[in-house]
Write a protein that binds this DNA or RNA. Structure first.
Length: 559
RNA sequence: GUGUCAAUAGCUCAGCUGGAUAGAGCAUCGCCCUUCUAAGGCGAGGGCCGGGGGUUCGAAUCCCUCUUGACACACCA
């Protein structure tokens, strides 16, 4: 629903002004009405002062029988005041919240990208929730979404881990300590090889043996992958994230020659400094390297192979890649290569980059400093949620369940609350606060509504006719207007590929809702008004459910 | 060096497809639990919107330039 339409309808009466609809904007505050029409841009065309134009428009409009209650002309603006009771009644009885019908289009989203050789870290938090939220946005607008976790399961890191296992490890240790054991060997080996060139060669040899599926080494590799993947799936499951495909880099490592042959047939290939490249100088880009001088695959050629493979599997209309901003050039390059190769799907490829998290005291390293390791973050925020619940005066039936939802909310909130492109500072104490503008605040607001609705079940309102006049109260009408903005907000977030827009919307709605029920008692003695107010908070609740779901925020009955 | 992105309150961030007095949270200082959950609400203080030009009736918002910072720029991904 678009309430500006009410103003457009009235403006149709004007014949001499041309198109005015797109000049209508939200008023700055309630004292200036709901919408306004600044007349300054008309002044030059009409050779009259903005004040006179505003006066003329305000005087010539007839609002009898419309939903506009009052029009006034102030300092060159025409201010429109909606009839709040009428609008509220119409919105509350006609609001359609259902999601869009399937549109038959397929969008693949490549996100999360777990590197199985390393601990998951805070970067995955941002990437994963951003991807999941975009997936839900696309689904809301009728797309079929394929969630792809393009795992890092290839390269010398695995040679290093296996070398570490051979030097210090044993089966028992790996079986009991799992990922922690593997990480320990990896870190230990990295430290050792820094001072010993022979070890570097050893790691390279071992990764070659993995590629050749060496009968002794390959099973160890498979075990490493299995352990790391299980751990990744465990953590992602806690976060509520699940994927349709876990096909990784290793699957495409052997496709380099196919890719190079294909590009060669299109006349795109040249050799430079021993490496195989596609020259992109015509497009002001550095060359795209598709095969290393030693003949091995490189990320660009694996990405090209993966794109072709996915198109064959899913016939996608769009494919989104989520990575931090530093890979921007890489994506621009290989997208261009696919375009030059005449791939029909190349125009549907899109790189969604995002700013990085940095810790207050410096950079994030996944190899040292466990500070930003995902499993620690999850444990920390879960502990904290449990503590807070323990000390609450309000009695909660399922404290464990609530703590988990609060913890997850805090994690997704931190991934989504800042504009996608911006770098953000991640201060764990600040980020994991439960007060002020936070995920728990939003969840809390929702539970308050649930609480009121529960209490209202005791009332018999069946034969009561709603009295909407009480919804002219300022926060009440703000809520009505906000509900009407749901679809526009989701569309904007989709178009800008930025869920932070939805999060801001939820936050504003919660703030207004929180004020509303403190200022205005919902359940009082005036039943016709109670019924109207309940209709309002019920709609707000339903709108919040939809919007919360988009930003991966779960709701509960109480907290 | 070239390119991309950023700079708004003490801190973290909104606002940026131009419109009326620049917003919020945190932190600081007050006030409000006999009344639908105080993870809450109300109030106070706090700003050359990085600097300088330009476009416009009007600029935090658009353009140019400078400064500062982050990132990228061939065999890591």
């Amino acid at each position: 629903m678009n309430l500006k339409q009410e103003v457009y309808n009235v403006l149709k009466q004007l014949k001499d002004y041309g198109e005015l609809d797109n000049l209508v904007i939200d008023s700055i505050d309630a004292s200036k009405g709901d919408f306004c029409l600044p007349c300054f841009s008309l002044a030059k065309i009409m050779r009259k002062s903005p004040m006179m134009i505003a006066d003329d428009i305000a005087n010539s409009l007839n609002i009898n029988g419309t939903t506009i209650e009052k029009i006034e002309s102030v300092a060159g603006y025409v201010n429109f005041f909606l009839n709040k009771a009428k609008i509220s009644e119409s919105v509350l009885n006609n609001f359609n919240i259902s999601r869009n019908q399937p549109n038959g289009k397929v969008v693949c989203i490549d996100y999360c990208s777990v590197n199985l050789a390393k601990y998951m870290h805070i970067g995955h938090l941002k990437n994963s929730f951003l991807g999941e939220s975009l997936a839900r946005l696309f689904e809301n607008f009728g797309y079929k979404v394929v969630r792809i976790n393009y795992i890092g399961d290839y390269g010398t890191p695995y040679g290093k881990i296996i070398a570490g296992i051979q030097m210090w490890g044993n089966d028992d240790d790996i079986n009991t300590r799992g990922i922690d054991a593997l990480q320990e060997y990896y870190v230990k080996f990295c430290a050792a090889e820094a001072e010993d060139e022979n070890l570097q060669q050893l790691a390279r040899d071992l990764s070659k043996k993995i590629e050749d599926k060496d009968s002794e080494i390959y099973p160890i590799y498979q075990k490493v992958i299995e352990i790391a993947r299980k751990e990744a799936e465990r953590l992602l499951d806690i976060l509520g994230l699940h994927f349709d495909s876990w096909k990784g880099e290793a699957s495409y490592a052997n496709d380099v020659n196919k890719v190079v042959d294909m590009l060669d047939q299109k006349g795109l290939i040249s050799i430079s400094q021993g490496a195989t490249i596609v020259d992109l100088s015509k497009f002001d880009m550095p060359p795209c390297l598709v095969k290393r001088s030693d003949g091995a695959s490189i990320y660009a050629s694996r990405d090209i192979a993966a794109a072709i493979d996915r198109y064959n599997d899913y016939k996608f209309d769009k494919m989104l890649y989520l990575t931090a901003v530093e890979q921007k050039l890489h994506f621009a390059q290989f997208f261009k290569v696919l375009e030059l190769a005449g791939m029909p799907f190349s125009s549907g490829l899109e790189h969604i980059s995002y700013g990085r998290f940095s810790l207050p005291n410096g950079k994030i390293s996944s190899r040292r400093g466990k500070q930003a390791v995902l499993v620690d973050l999850i444990d920390y925020v879960l502990d904290k949620a449990n503590d807070v619940i323990k000390n609450r005066t309000f009695n909660i039936e399922n404290p464990k369940d609530v703590a988990l939802k609060v913890a997850k909310g805090v994690l997704s909130f931190n991934a989504l609350n800042i504009e996608r492109n911006k770098d953000a500072i991640f201060d764990i104490e600040r980020a994991f606060s439960f007060e002020g503008e936070t995920a728990p605040y939003m969840q809390y607001t929702y539970t308050r509504v649930m609480s009121i609705l529960r209490k209202a079940q005791g009332l018999n309102l069946d034969n009561i006719i709603s009295d909407y006049s009480c919804l002219d109260q300022i926060q009440a009408f703000e809520l009505i207007k906000m509900c009407c903005n749901l679809n526009n907000t989701l569309k904007l977030a989709l178009d800008k590929r930025d869920p932070s827009i939805v999060l801001k919307y939820c936050m504003e709605m919660c703030k207004t809702l929180n004020k509303y029920y403190t200022v205005c008692k919902i359940l009082d003695d005036n039943l016709p008004q109670v019924k109207a107010k309940l209709q309002l908070i019920c709609l707000v609740k339903n709108v919040l459910s939809v919007a919360f779901n988009i930003i991966c925020l779960e709701t509960m009955e109480e907290m």
